[in-house]
Design a protein around this nucleic acid. Structure first.
Lengths: 160, 160
DNA sequence: CTTGACCCTCAAGTCCGCTTGAGGGTGTGT
DNA sequence: ACACACCCTCAAGCGGACTTGAGGGTCAAG
């Protein structure tokens, strides 16, 4: 009867993460070590549940645990140099916008090709395959095309 | 004087990948083994360079090497069951669209917060930090807020 | 005919984000 | 008093995507 606080299993259930994952997050200092019961059990609050939900969302948006940690750190220290926060935010914003554009371009090409194929009676093959085949010689598109051939974009420096 | 074909280093230079990475791609069967010179040097053509550029692009769009391999395989076999290609394409399209929406929502929240801060004179701190601090008690936003607090979204099953 | 920049293979190491396993306490229902 | 579900730690394993290292050949220039 250690009066209160969620057990790790409760938190796991509420967030959809596994207990080991939560411990792991603590181990990499993404999560602050929670208070323990007399017998050493971690006791969490709703706040942790919300932080974890945030982590999941940020992760699904493409942020690494390290970045998320950075953000969380800033968010927890109300007295942090704010220009930092703002800078960080702006950098994130730019990154996200770039990515959206990139994906949108891709989406348009892809949708365009699919539509072409769809218009062309049932996808019984021959027609579609020929598009692919001819695409390989250098024409406007097809998934496989912009997916296998004739990429015009200058290889720009990659992460790492 | 083995007359012709790009050496792995040339390809590396043209694509921005490292030579080991290119060999690695071959080892995982993402790239077909190129012909070799009498002395065992790999001899590539421009086609490979373009495939590699495609791989980089697809990767930057969030596809795994495995998925890229699948796509490349389909694209190379002109006589593949086309409904497959089409299915695959549609699945990719849906995935990409979902992601764009997710990112867009995020972008809007983020931009909104930044704008709020920007309006508020110089980011000299105090003001911004107070937003963060108060946000931690449960108000409408701040990056850190929608980044640390009050996430309404039901934890939905995650990859794996 | 040596030097230096490339090339080769194969094995092992690295980073990320977890999961799994061994070995051992806790706490509650019957 | 005993299950049985849950908690703990620590160590190792895993998949993805590479990088690094050891040990050794090739080739064009000087």
């Amino acid at each position: 009867m250690d009066m209160a606080g969620l057990l790790i299993g409760d938190v796991a259930e509420r967030t959809g993460l596994s207990a080991p994952t939560i411990r792991y997050y603590e181990s990499i200092r993404l999560l602050a070590p929670p208070p323990r019961s007399a017998t050493g059990y971690r006791r969490y609050t709703e706040t942790t549940v919300e932080e974890l939900r945030f982590i999941k969302k940020a992760q699904s948006l493409g942020f690494s645990l390290e970045e998320i940690g950075e953000i969380l750190k800033l968010s927890r220290a109300g007295d942090t140099p704010c220009s930092h926060v703002l800078d960080l935010s702006r950098r994130h914003l730019r990154a996200v916008e770039e990515r959206i554009q990139q994906l949108t371009r891709f989406r348009n090409q892809l949708a365009g090709e699919i539509a072409k194929w769809d218009g062309e009676q049932e996808p019984t093959c021959r027609g579609l395959c020929q598009i692919i085949a001819s695409a390989e010689e250098g024409e406007p598109a097809t998934i496989e095309l912009h997916i296998g051939v004739r990429q015009k974009d200058k290889a720009r420096k990659q992460r790492r």
